[in-house]
Write a protein that binds this DNA or RNA. Structure first.
Lengths: 334, 334
DNA sequence: GAGCCAAATGTAACCGGTTACATCACACCG
DNA sequence: CGGTGTGATGTAACCGGTTACATTTGGCTC
């Protein structure tokens, strides 16, 4: 392995000069710089980054904790993270937690064992009960997408409440009065905000909330399929269903069609996320578009700001959403 | 930062003893072992893994080169990689190449700069023209899913030719004689094998190949949508379409329905991969199921075998496929 | 009791960089 | 001409572990 000493020898200078030539070229004279660079080339020298990082106490790696990468939305967020990280010279260590908190804790320890500089978590769960490293310094972390209420770190999220309200208002405007909701797992702040937005809209329209129209799911098509089955089995079934993810909406549609219902003729369905498949569903899904890649990029930018001690201003950001109206929602049957 | 010397001091032993207690507990006496472990606990000591790895010249990281993580199939493969790697104590450095070869080369250099021990690539592209490190040692690499013909490394793939033949035979058995194909990008070995399987089946059935029925796509729903449009605009349109991915099949179905065609009444559609959405499409997709997660696990196992010099036997593996018949294929209209 | 061996532990070199500090050459000034 | 400041380079300590080799200890044999 060619190391810095070989290069130094080859160039006839000291190792310090080689190091300086590569790290801060401006402090060495042009003549030596050329000599060193030529020697570097000749020797095919590449610095051993493990050594560099060990010495500089910076790994240039970010851990990403994601509940499941198999979810289309998260896949897009990760794409954004990946791209932004690469641009700034950071690597991405992926951790698919599958919701196991212990797995998350394991991966978060990558930071305390100096394998990564910081954590981006895409789920509201604080893997650090103490919220601090053993020596009291807070863990560099950014919380994106699903955000803790009192997150002790920068956050990026959607205004889920406003978005859910917007979508519900769209359904109300079409004339729906009984609107079902397939929400996410209980206890999730994201779901809670969206349910709040749904309530806001109903309340503003003077419609009483019917708890029996709210069904939990887990963001998979299967859970949407099952929840839709439950909803239409009600004595007074809804005329529209608001699903908290496009995946669940697609599952729901599959169930409704099998039950012989026309969409949106008999029942309207709306989703959330605007994944690729939303446009190709039959009928195409009305949904809330989220800037998934932007979440990733923003999260990386914020985390690196923290890491590089550029603590400027407001660490909580909201990204914009947009209502995309397609064919799966329409006026209720009279 | 608590380091090994503090622990040694606390336990009243030398640093070597501490190191040995943690790495090879069997060579230290039970009494000292207990002393050391207690000191480790007391000090809240965690080894600095950057130092460990630097010294031991093993990063315990694997780079994964993936064309696009936004593809559902790859997301599942990565899930498998992730899980298997974690089990064996390796981290996963993700590289979403978006098909840019230069990006791949950048990431592959993570290995030469000692940031990762090996590479798993999910696409047939050799980022190392020289196929070797500068000092002549071959790069630890495994090629999975889409595999180079003459891959100089272990590989895991599907028997794409047989799978495509199987699916085509299913369509032939239903009575189809004009079968369109929406394939992947040109030059891809994966696509070439699948086209070969399609040909095999047609040939065996005594049907002449009509090149105009083969349309290229890029595995996205959009490209499936567009290719389907092209196919049905032919003078003699096909009565069935075989898509090389479920994503494209879903796009194709969307296009066909918009054109007023019933599926499978007027035209059958089959996919490949058996992604989650395949079951929830309308109609549900007939497709070839691939063990996506197993690809990931297998690739990790093989790569670690290479890394740990356990070079045993046959380094090329095929995973099984399965024809899943659902509602999107049926007999042609008479 | 001397001699020997094995097991347990300590000492210190080493991995490959970075960087604080020392050194040196040289120009400029009063 | 001595003093001083500046820019370029060299020397060597250091990061936090691992491990080859040296040393110590104690049990066993003859």
């Amino acid at each position: 392995m060619t190391n810095i000493r070989k290069v130094a020898e080859l160039a006839g200078v000291s190792v310090a000069t080689v190091s300086r030539t590569l790290r801060s070229p401006d402090v060495v004279s042009p003549a030596t710089r050329d000599k060193v660079l030529q020697a570097v080339n000749e020797a095919g020298y590449k610095p051993n980054l493990m050594a560099v990082r060990f010495r500089s106490r910076r790994t240039h790696n970010l851990v990403v904790l994601v509940p499941t990468i198999a979810n289309t939305f998260f896949a897009r967020v990760i794409s954004g993270i990946q791209e932004a990280a690469q641009e700034r010279g950071y690597g991405v260590l992926l951790c698919n937690t599958n919701g196991h908190e212990e797995t998350e804790a394991t991966y978060a320890s990558l930071v305390t064992t100096r394998q990564a500089d910081g954590v981006i978590q895409l789920r509201a769960y604080n893997p650090f009960p103490e919220d601090a490293d053993s020596d009291g310094t807070p863990l560099p972390m950014v919380n994106a997408c699903e955000v803790l209420d009192d997150a002790p770190c920068p956050t990026v999220k959607l205004d889920n409440r406003a978005a859910a309200r917007l979508l519900t208002e769209h359904l109300l405007a079409l004339g729906h009065r009984r609107i079902g909701m397939i929400k996410g797992p209980r206890r999730s702040p994201l779901t809670r905000d969206r349910v709040a937005g749904y309530r806001d809209a109903l309340e503003a329209a003077g419609i009483a909330l019917d708890e029996s129209l709210i069904c939990p799911g887990d963001f998979t098509p299967r859970s949407g399929y099952e929840a839709a089955g439950t909803l239409i089995a009600r004595a007074e079934p809804p005329t529209a269903i608001f699903c908290e993810s496009d995946e669940m909406a697609i599952g729901a549609i599959s169930c409704l069609k099998q039950a012989g219902l026309a969409i949106p003729g008999d029942i309207s369905v709306a989703g959330f996320d605007d994944i690729d498949f939303a446009s190709y569903s039959d009928p195409p899904l009305t949904t809330i578009a989220q800037p998934a890649e932007a979440f990733g990029k923003q999260a990386v930018a914020m985390l690196i700001d923290v890491l590089e001690r550029r603590h400027q201003g407001e660490p909580h950001r909201m990204l914009p959403h947009e209502l995309v109206i397609r064919g799966s929602t329409g006026e209720p049957a009279t």
